[in-house]
């Protein structure tokens, strides 16, 4: 009879549907399918897709590769902690190390060029949040995540941590430069 009483009909499965429900189900289903196929569609025709490329590795191995890149392409140091700034050649592999509570090195990239950026944490989870672009990616310890990124316009950007990582979480920020 009502939703808090058992159905009056013993067999309710065969009751006819009203037109409202039928029409709405069809419309909603079509919309659901459109939303579903939008995702594979964007993998084929869209520009912004999160890479599937990832490897298991150890913090030591990752830090070693990062240090090699810093040694090769360092151009200067910045900030009171003298964080190295690297300017890697286009197309190269760059390692960005997240740890409590800093990002290293600072990257200087060229607009319009692509880079393979490896993201990994040395300790806990961190969040790579590139502002003001607003690209947000989870950074795990033990998983080397390889993104191919193409900065579009020159400017000063910031990487802030947006995965809670303890008491100084809100201090974990680094610049990222894009030059012509």
């Amino acid at each position: 009879m009502s939703a808090i009483l058992p159905p009056t009909e013993r067999v309710w499965w065969k009751e006819p549907l009203d037109r409202v429900e039928l029409l709405w189900i069809v419309i909603a289903l079509v919309w659901c399918l459109i939303m579903f196929f939008m995702m594979p569609y964007w993998h084929v025709y869209g520009q912004q897709n999160l890479a599937n490329e990832a490897y298991k590795t150890s913090p030591e191995a990752f830090a070693k590769k990062a240090d090699e890149v810093i040694a090769k392409y360092k151009v200067r140091e910045e900030g009171p902690q003298k964080i190295p700034v690297v300017k890697p050649p286009a197309g190269s592999d760059v390692y960005l190390v997240a740890r409590l509570w800093s990002w290293q090195p600072i990257l200087e990239l060229e607009a319009g060029k692509s880079y393979r950026i490896h993201l990994m944490s040395m300790d806990w989870l961190h969040g790579f949040s590139l502002q003001p672009e607003n690209i947000n990616i989870e950074v795990h310890p033990g998983y080397d995540h390889v993104l191919t990124v193409t900065p579009t316009a020159p400017g000063k950007f910031s990487i802030i941590c947006n995965e809670y990582c303890g008491i100084n979480h809100h201090t974990m920020i680094s610049p990222l430069y894009v030059v012509k």
Partner: peptide, 10 residues
């Protein structure tokens, strides 16, 4: 879990 377990090693 299978996907995570089967990830390649760097």
């Amino acid at each position: 879990v299978m996907e995570i377990v089967n990830l390649p090693i760097a």
